[in-house]
Write a protein that binds this DNA or RNA. Structure first.
Length: 569
RNA sequence: UGGGGUGUAGCCAAGUGGUAAGGCAACGGGUUUUGAUCCCGUCAUUCGCAGGUUCGAUUCCUGCCACCCCAGCCA
């Protein structure tokens, strides 16, 4: 995926390489990506997808896409479909290895029976409150359940009747018998099966008892022959339970769990619960809103899958808590898009410019390259006339030093066309510029010898007579602080929403080719950024554009530095 | 004050007993009809802190400090 010189293997790939060298699994590498279908995948999942599928690919191994569907109350087939689409879009293929924890419900039940018969699990009749109250705290041990020593035969009978539907939700629970005094709370007789009279999206009403994560996940790993079960750090203290389960049961294979730190990107949140909340309150349009950190959102935003893969690879895999700067993600996107995106001109915030010495009825077709570095991408004709739209930002009446764009009496090049001079500034009642009256230098048309005359600035434009109008949306970060979910003062993440995360440009004027942009097509609007024709809202001949990312902008940086200077003075 | 983790530049991240890779960012310079791209250069006498072992430590030992995770019949 990356052609960069390999910087040593990350610790997981190192473990795998060592296992391969020692012949631990006869050289087999089997991994799995195990999402719960209770929401859309986000950028953090992308890291896990790339790791699990990537590591398998690199070692001629296999990777399962396994849905961890053990909680019918929260899960939904729509999420299953979305997750499959996202993984596929990211560029990975699970071939025939699409599985579900629910595929193993019968095995899981049998494993539970095995545990009960071995005296390693018991049915507890305590209420949820009692169980919570006797679990102890971080510093105090828990107390044994009064039913802990219930005879195996009795537990077995109760467990069978739990399955048969004789009890209500919460009435009974199956617990592993480990150690209520363990300093690791996960080992204090964890619940492994609970009653839930709820229809499951795959098994329907067949079951009314459902396994808990630790039990289902561990055994699913073993049944699938997973060699390296990669998960995030918060499961680190579940590993003793994972290993305990493997120790008690007769399973065909012994997987190993390895934990790595989850991906955190500044100004983003990756909590499905919180993302769902943003949708509920109407802050965003849905899971695929272009501002969402979901795979679907990033895709709709115009981020290429290859850029996401590159990002995950550049971020690395460690056990360190980190906060990746957005700049890295944006660099990956720009690098990818710069390669292939055809260039075009679009004026986002237009102001009228009239060439007073240009014939009113004349139209010239200007030749423009579709890519400055890749001639093979061809050229196109762009109509030019007496009245043009230019970017409001590209004119300043009283500019600072080093402003290379248009100013009264100043010259600038119109990209792919002529050098012009600004003669007159027309303003409205409110003092805003309504029109710039300029003259063009006929000798300086692009391609003509006179074009070699140097002027400091080049600006983009669109012929007013030929302009296509289209909605353009500018997106910015959803939050105003790097860690909206980690506020020390206890404020809610919603308190940090960026009111300017979406800015609509209703008057944008595009050059004609852009009017035919196909949904999903990405262009570089020269000097402003990369834009994608929205996959949902674009109609044939009537595109709606989303800004993917801005171009790197040295001028904006200078301006900001100047402002900072003023502020400090 | 229990248990489990983690601490290498602004942000990531290699290195794990022999004297600090690489990327992003930043900053300088060159090319440029995108202030884009591209190219060149600069950017840790130092590896959370304090001791110790050693000819020599980011790497080994001891102590301390900081941060993250865990008390769902969620995953």
């Amino acid at each position: 995926m990356s052609d960069d010189a390999p910087a040593g293997l990350d610790f997981i790939r190192q473990i795998i390489a060592d296992d391969n060298a020692s012949g631990k699994h006869d050289g087999r590498v089997v991994t799995r990506f195990p999402p719960e279908p209770n929401g859309f995948l986000h950028i953090g999942h992308a890291k896990s997808v790339c790791l699990n599928f990537g590591v398998a690919e690199e070692n001629n191994g296999r990777c399962f896409l396994r849905f961890d569907d053990t909680n019918p109350l929260k899960e939904d087939q729509d999420f299953v479909d979305a997750i499959e689409a996202d993984v596929r879009w990211l560029g990975y293929d699970w071939e025939d290895r699409l599985t579900h924890a629910s595929d193993y419900y019968e095995d899981l039940y049998n494993c539970a029976v095995q545990l009960i018969e071995a005296g390693k699990a018991y049915v507890d009749s305590q209420t949820p409150d009692e169980i919570r109250a006797t679990r102890g705290t971080l510093t105090e041990p828990g107390q044994n359940s009064p039913h802990r020593e219930r005879p195996a035969a009795e537990s077995l009978d109760l467990f069978q009747r739990m399955r048969a539907g004789e009890f209500a939700d919460g009435e009974l629970v199956l617990r592993a018998k480990i150690n209520m005094a363990s300093p690791n709370i996960n080992l204090r007789d964890p619940i492994i099966f609970r009653i839930r009279h709820a229809a499951h999206q795959r098994t329907g009403d067949k079951w009314c008892i459902y396994p808990m994560y630790d039990f289902a996940h561990t055994i699913s790993d073993a049944l699938e022959g997973i060699t390296h079960s990669l998960c995030t750090l918060e499961f680190e203290d579940h590993r003793p339970l994972y290993d305990w389960i493997l120790d008690q049961l007769t399973l065909p294979h012994r997987p190993r769990q390895i934990e790595f730190s989850r991906l955190n990107v500044a100004y983003m949140i990756t909590s499905k619960r919180r993302l769902a909340e943003l949708i509920d309150i109407g802050q965003v349009g849905g899971w695929d809103d272009p501002r969402m950190p979901t795979i679907a959102g990033l895709r709709r935003r115009g981020y290429p899958a290859a850029a996401l893969r590159d990002f995950c690879s550049r971020v690395g895999v460690t056990k360190k808590d980190h906060l990746i700067e957005m700049a890295l993600l944006e660099t990956c996107v720009r690098e990818n898009l710069n390669e292939d995106a055809p260039r075009a001109m679009a004026v986002l915030d237009p102001v009228k410019l009239v060439l007073t010495n240009y014939p009113a009825d004349q139209v010239e077709m200007m030749t423009a390259a579709n890519h400055p570095q890749r001639g093979e991408l061809g050229e196109r004709e762009v109509p030019f006339g007496r009245e043009l739209w230019i970017e409001r930002d590209d004119f300043m009446e009283d500019p600072p030093k080093k402003f290379f764009r248009l100013k009264p009496g100043g010259e600038v090049r119109l990209r792919n066309a002529y050098i012009i001079r600004c003669d007159e500034v027309v303003k409205g009642e409110d003092g805003n510029v309504t029109e710039l009256r300029c003259t063009y230098d006929a000798d300086t048309r692009s391609g003509l010898p006179g074009a070699s005359r140097k002027v400091k600035g080049t600006i983009h434009w669109v012929s007013a007579a030929h302009a296509v109008s289209a909605p353009v949306r500018l997106y910015d970060r959803l939050f105003t602080v790097p860690r909206p979910d980690m506020d020390k003062s206890g404020r809610d993440f919603k308190d940090f929403l960026n009111p300017e995360s979406l800015q609509e440009m209703p008057a944008a004027k595009l050059e004609p080719v852009l009017g035919d942009a196909a949904a999903g097509a990405v262009y570089q609007f020269e000097r402003t950024g990369y834009f994608v024709a929205d996959s949902q809202d674009s109609q044939p001949g009537a595109p709606v554009f989303n800004r993917v990312v801005t171009l790197r902008d040295t001028w904006a940086k200078l301006e900001q530095a100047a402002l900072q200077e003023l502020g400090n003075a």
